[in-house]
Amino acid sequence: MDDLRELYQEVILDHNQNPQNFGRLEAATHSGDGYNPLCGDRLSLTLDVRGDSVNDIRFSGSGCAISKASASIMTTVVKGKTVVETESLFDAFHKLVTTGDAGDGELGKLAVMAGVHKYPVRVKCATLAWHTLKNCLSGKNEVAKTE
């Protein structure tokens, strides 16, 4: 199972078992849901955006280790970032999980998700949280779907 360790890094397993920022914010300025119709994964985000920065964020839902860890790591990374910064992270992350290209270091600890690019069917698991975040921040009220 060694090559699978590349996908399921220790950090990912840790976040899966002890997800960070799990739950809901009572006083959210933004919220949104993500749904993966193919596998039934569901995810909800609540955000507290002040000015143009993400002051706080929580996620809840059910999904596989990849989608849960990706959501958990995402919440820790975007906290404190500006909306524009999260948009640029979205693009860099998308490139990472589809090509394995980690760019010039901007991704930081998100780089542990690089292994996903070798498993095309798991890309949608890794990106569900990010699509949901993008929809939330752009004020779209639709359910984000990855398929």
Binding site: M1, L4, L7, Y8, C64, A65, I66, K68, Y119, R122
Partner: peptide, 12 residues
């Protein structure tokens, strides 16, 4: 073990 992870691991 979520079923997707399980199916990926069994595939090994």
């Amino acid at each position: 073990v979520h079923p997707h992870d399980l199916s990926q691991l069994l595939d090994r």
